[in-house]
Amino acid sequence: MTMTMPRKTPAITNQSCLSLEKVTISYGSFEAVRDVYLEIPRGKVTAFIGPSGCGKSTVLRGLNRMNDLIEGCTLKGRVIFDGQDIYAPEVDPVEVRRRIGMVFQQPNPFPKSIYENIAFGARINGFTGDMDELVESSLRKAFIWDETKDKLKESGNSLSGGQQQRLCIARAIAIEPEVILMDEPCSALDPISTLKIEELMHELKKTFSIVIVTHNMQQAVRVSDQTAFFNAEAVEGGTGKVGYLVEFDETERIFNSPLQQATQDYVTGRFG
């Protein structure tokens, strides 16, 4: 049976934390993703799912101007954060990244001690309080304190992959951002480490808004409150596929009763 009732727009808009208005991101002349409208809610976990090449990671990096580092990457449209278009010319991208932190696909701790990995971000952001306390509380919040408390002076690279990723999350939360972006944070990890990070996300969303890109649909179901499904389609005259946002709704609805056929096909594995 199908639901025919009109559905109210997802999320309560005054609670939205980041909003995208007609965002189009291109690499050179190639459009990677087109015309995205999205309201990312505050204090929730939002998941981006979709096939490879649909532009979900590109959109994620667009949320804290990480794309600035990729040559030829341009963004049209507006990304509103805290009442400000973060792509406005007067905005300092460094300030944006201080308030919207990022965790990457591959764990990338700095080749410094575990302590310094956490302290680095805080120090460059002008933190003046008790550094020992900050390091401990950040590591505790990332559920890695017990494993690292006796070896804070050892290199971050001496940890296992899953521990490194939690260290990277601790590093991100040490600068107390408002939003944490996670680009497939578990794809390089084993199932046990993945589980730990998922538990961690449930804890973190009490304090932060989280946006996560994942290829793992079970993960999206387990951790997210809202899910955005992206897809890619070939366009006439274009050289490749252009990504677009198909549907954005509460996770439960996306997976149980999506409005779009494409979403239904994807989440039930009948894609392509």
Binding site: R97, M102, F110
Partner: peptide
């Protein structure tokens, strides 16, 4: 990925180069 990590925690380009890339 290393310089990305530094920029991701709000380091400026100068800080990224002098504190992360150059020592590596």
């Amino acid at each position: 990925a290393l310089s990305m990590g530094a920029i991701g925690v709000g380091a400026s380009k100068f800080v990224t180069i002098t504190r992360i890339t150059l020592p590596s």
